[in-house]
Structures are given as structure tokens and as C-alpha cells.
Simulated scan of single mutants.
Amino acid sequence: MSDRVLVINSGSSSLKYQLVDVDSGTALASGLVERIGEETGDVVHRSVDGEPIKLQVKIADHAAGLRLAFDMLERTGMSLSGSSIAAVGHRVVHGGEVFYRPTLITDEVMKEIDRLSALAPLHNPANIIGIESARELLPQVPHVAVFDTAFFHGLPDAAATYAIDSEVAREHGIRRYGFHGTSHEYVSGQVAQVLGRPLDQLKQIVLHLGNGASASAVRYGRAIDTSMGMTPLEGLVMGTRCGDIDPGIIMHLRRSADMDVDQIDQLLNRRSGLKGLCGDNDFREVRRMIESGDSAAQLAYDVYVHRLRRYIGAYMIELGGVDAITFTAGVGENSPTVRADALAGLESFGIAIDQDRNNSQSRAARVISIDDARVKVLVVPTNEELAIARASIACIAAD
């Protein structure tokens, strides 16, 4: 059997894909199809040993986008015909209380993922479109769903429960599910390898900082808390999402601004966070604005770091001490300033970053704390595609 897995991450108007060799842990090819359904779409395809291929062409729907991706793979010698791949692994954002393991996709599973769209209306419907298109184009290959919420399925009841009427919560599936679980699980496992210590002996804080951002407390390999909740809106300040706010703000906006549910949804998910505070959600641009003296950008950054430090402090107490704090994802991996500011002044807690190590441009997983620091601080590049590919292979092997 082939050890290659095609990993697909489908958004509402975009589609990311990667062909992963599970044995070697390498990406043989990857690509991004954007602006699906618009007048002109964009395709960028990268293979290991070639220049990127870029196209601008109308892409009618996700099925057309996938066909383009398959054409790109074929052109670069990565055919998906026959038994060239073992499985297709699909990222699915919300698994609810039903799905907490990688799951072989059947028509019944699809119905359940669709039912869970009520809990993730911005994500699950887009994931479904990608799955349906891929199943049509590759009907002979097993398709596996890997859920963002799975790693947090076993959260302690005290961490998973909202303090609202329990019957209402039960009837409507209201609890804390957590997201970015594939990344948090992968990164926490990598930390153990980098430190040369057993995973089941480490107390960790993992900070997944990208356009979407989340923190997790991982004790001995199991998540005991995470910043995102029933939806990916709770928690840290993000690119366009507000993170934690007083729920009373929602009622206030309804009554005072006459905003309906959809308008409030758009505000909190699309027009808040860094973008809402300073007009831009690209962290590089926010830094440029700060350097040019923009006070709104400075405030946005300060709010971002303040919230981050609050979660770090809370998780240090919840874990009863911490062995490792790890930064990952786009901002976490690429912003030495955020890493330094998030942990500034914590030397009395055994946390101290080495400035040269922190400023290094290395892309490798590495320790950036000083040698004798009690708490190890790391930068570990996440690799959700590899994690999904490995989970897909394990799923079909167990089936």
C-alpha cells in the first residue's frame, strides 16, 4: 500500500492541499486555490524540486478547484490515479461530542458533520463541500475526517462546562469544544522529542498564534484546558476575531445599535481583533504601522499581548507549574517581538528568553530560553497536514 496521503483543507472560497509522504514526513507537493466562484481565481502549486506554478483562471466551484489541483499534481509528476495514494485526509473543524477520533467518511458520517454545522456555520459547510468534491473525483480511495476539536474531547468537566442553565446547554450542545487541536497535539508531541523527555512527564503551554489564535494547557500529553470554546471566537485576540468579551455586549448591540444576529456575527468574527482595532489583521503590517508611530496599531498590539499573558499566567497556575512554553503557527513562529513581550518580566517564574536564540531566523524546532532556565521556551513549527496524514493512515489501518 502507498504511504502517500492527499490532505485537503477546504474553506468557503478556497482550498488548500498537500501531498504528504507519511514515511519520510515530507510534503511532496502543496497548493492553494483561492477565490473560488469569483470572476478570476488564483492557483499556486509548489512541488519539492520545482518553481511554483501560478495560474489565474475562473474556478466555478470546489470540484473545478480540485480538478485544477489534480492537473497541477499530474504536470509535476505526482499522479493521483490508481493506487498512488493510500487515503485522502480532510480537516473538519467541528466534531461536536460525536467525533473525537479520525473517522472513515461514509454518507452517514457526512450527515452528522452537516448536522454539526449549527455549531460551526463558518467552517463545517465549507469542509463538507471539499469532502463531497473529493469523494466524487476520487471515489476509489478511502476518505478520512480529522477533527480540530478531537484533542480537546477529554477536557475535564470543570474546563468544558459553561455556567448556564444545564438543560439549555444539553439541548443545544453548548459546551467548550476547543479548536486547533491537531496543531496543539502535534506540537506538544514535538516538544517532548526536542527536549528528549517523555511526553507523559511534561506540563506544557502551547500557543498557536496565527490569524486564528489559541492557547492550550497540556498535562502529561492530555489537554486540560484551551482558550477557544464552543466556537473559535472565544479566547485570545485574533486577526479579525475579538476573543473574550463580556456577553452583555451582544445584548447591548442588539438593543442600542439595532444590530441583528448576522450583523453582530460579522462584527465579532470579521471586523474585530487586530483588524477592528487598527484596520489591518496582517501582523507584519501592524508592526510596520507601530514603527511609523501609529497609536491605534500600538494599542492593538498591547491588547493582543495583554490577553496572551493573561492566559499564560492562568495556565501556569492550572498546571501547577510548567516545564515548557511553546510558540507555533504564523505569528508564533515568525515574531520574536511577540515571544519576548509575552514572556517579559517572568524571570522569577524560571522563564527567561535568550535574545540571540529568539531572534534567529532558523525554521527548525528549537529551544530559545537561556541554558539554565527552569522553564524551557521553544519555537516549534506546526505541521497539521502531516498530523492529518498520519491520522488518516492509522484510521484506515485500524478499519
Rank of each mutant, 00 (worst) to 15 (best):
A257D: 13
A215F: 11
A257P: 08
D244W: 08
L209T: 00
I205E: 06
S216N: 04
D200P: 11
M228I: 12
C242G: 06
D258Q: 15
L195S: 10
D260W: 03
N269D: 01
E185M: 11
D244L: 04
H180N: 04
S227P: 11
V194P: 02
H208Q: 12
C242V: 03
C242W: 00
Q263D: 09
K203P: 12
R271M: 14
G243K: 00
G178W: 00
I249K: 08
K203A: 13
A223N: 09
I245D: 04
N281M: 11
L268Q: 04
A223S: 15
G243R: 00
A215T: 11
G243M: 00
D280T: 14
V286C: 02
M230H: 10
Q201D: 14
M230N: 13
D282K: 09
S183C: 11
F179C: 05
G210C: 10
G273L: 00
R219M: 14
I224M: 06
V218N: 09
L267C: 00
L195I: 05
Q204D: 03
H184P: 07
T240I: 09
A257L: 13
K275C: 07
P247E: 05
G212P: 07
F283T: 10
I224D: 05
Q193H: 13
I245N: 05
A217F: 03
I249F: 10
Q201E: 15
G196V: 07
R284V: 12
A257Y: 13
G212A: 09
L274D: 03
D262I: 10
L202N: 00
E185Q: 14
R197Q: 14
M259L: 15
R270F: 11
G229Q: 07
G178I: 08
T182V: 15
H184N: 10
G243A: 02
T226M: 12
F179E: 01
G279S: 11
D280M: 11
R254L: 14
G229M: 06
L274W: 02
I264F: 03
V218G: 08
L267T: 05
G279R: 00
Q190C: 11
G279V: 08
M259N: 06
K203D: 09
D244F: 07
A257M: 12
A223C: 15
S272Y: 00
S214Y: 04
L236C: 08
L277Q: 10
M259T: 01
N269C: 09
G239K: 02
Q263N: 11
F283M: 15
V237G: 01
V237K: 01
Y186C: 04
G210K: 02
E234A: 15
P198A: 06
R222H: 15
V237P: 00
G196P: 08
M238S: 09
L236E: 00
G235H: 10
D200A: 13
R255Q: 15
I264H: 07
G221Y: 09
A213V: 02
P198V: 09
Q263I: 03
S188C: 07
L195R: 10
D262C: 09
Q201V: 13
L207P: 04
